[in-house]
Design a binder for these strands. Structure first.
Lengths: 213, 213
DNA sequence: CCCATTGGAAAGTGTCACTATCCAACCACG
DNA sequence: CGTGGTTGGATAGTGACACTTTCCAATGGG
């Protein structure tokens, strides 16, 4: 398959594919001649993943490159590859270092993790970008006075705990390691808009029931 | 309070505040003289909301202006104001019009809404940006072959249904209408990163339990 | 009274994801 | 042959966005 066909089959313009090749998001095709290269199904698959990460997930090009590097790094075990790839995904900026409010929130969240029984998370602590995101997001909420109490947070966390279990069950159905890591990344990113859309839809539904129209 | 103090108290640079004033995201202060204006607590509050929408929610400036217009429109009833403000928030682009895959997904989702008992959503249908987002997100998932079956989707939806109930209970504790609408918008946007961080944290936790480390 | 400060307008900046333009080598048809 | 359209690759340009910087005249505290 030449670049033009790859473009047609993926719906991505030839110019953009060239750009991805240049940026190292797509491995070069097999050179046929000085001005010709051949691409195969693996390129199409990778291109789809890249497109999804960038367009749906809003992941910056440089970050996509990082994530792919981890996905393709076969020198690591599955759990490291998966962790590295997921941790490379973009996260909101951390709370400012010396913020006393953030320190207070961190303390509260630590107890919260204990209550949830999320002990691995508690041990990893600030090493995990997800945990740092959580701290900074909750700190912002508190600062603005929309402090859903820790109780509401726990309700949210309980649901996410249940869903994470489901997600991992689904992941276990993939036998191949590379595919497992790739799927985990894709699912992590692509399910986010689904999750958010479902939340808003649910809110609209209940809002309509309560307030009419 | 003059602009400099507003800047200091909010942590937003004076230049940026001027920019927001220019863009109509912040009402002008009360003019004291030809070169002096006074700002009050309401400006500080509004500035915090704007900052949160833009920085945390990634909402484009032009969209923030739209949302604020609805929040401030006292000519409408609460439910309309709330709906209008939430619908003005950014959503992923729709699926292309003539896409047969999208049509198929739409059909499946319609049945899914029925099963969920989300009848208002089903009646509104494609009018709701959230529903259109859901269709396009799920279509992308299916296209890339990461089709969490409708069953997984239903699991997600059930949890969001429960959480939406909670959120609205919390909203009911605000007596004032303007405050209710403002809080709903802030919560819709500011809880999203919390929700996503909790999901990833839960996934890390369960992944660590299953695969070690 | 005088000079640092203020609010406001206009133009500039940095980032990011493309996109348009070239160019020489190539292949396919006549 | 040959010739005209196509291909991959390099370079430079585009447009959107969220600020920043620069400039200015009016102000007002010491």
């Amino acid at each position: 398959m030449r670049l033009a066909e790859l473009s047609e089959r993926s719906g991505v313009s030839a110019g953009t594919i060239k750009y991805y090749l240049r940026e190292g998001l797509l491995p070069p095709g097999q050179r046929i001649s000085a001005t010709q290269a051949a691409y195969d199904e693996s390129h199409l698959r990778r291109l789809n993943l890249v497109r999804a990460l960038i367009q749906i997930g809003g992941v910056p090009v440089a970050t996509v490159r990082e994530v792919l590097r981890h996905i393709d790094d076969e020198s690591l075990g599955t759990s490291f590859r998966l962790g590295a790839a997921l941790w490379a995904l973009p996260h909101p900026p951390d709370a400012p270092e010396g913020d006393p409010l953030a320190a207070e929130v961190t303390e509260g969240l630590d107890g919260f993790l204990t209550d949830m029984g999320w002990n691995h998370a508690r041990e990893l602590g600030a090493l995990s970008p997800s945990y740092r995101s959580l701290i900074s997001s909750v700190t912002t909420l508190v600062r603005l006075g929309f402090a859903g109490s820790l109780d509401v947070l726990a309700q949210y966390a309980r649901r996410m705990d249940e869903l994470a279990r489901l997600d991992l069950d689904h992941l276990d159905t993939f036998p191949d390691d590379s595919q497992k890591v790739e799927s985990a990344v894709a699912a992590a990113v692509l399910f986010e808009p689904v999750l958010l859309a479902l939340r808003r839809l649910a809110q609209e539904e209940h809002s309509a029931r309560r307030y009419g129209l």
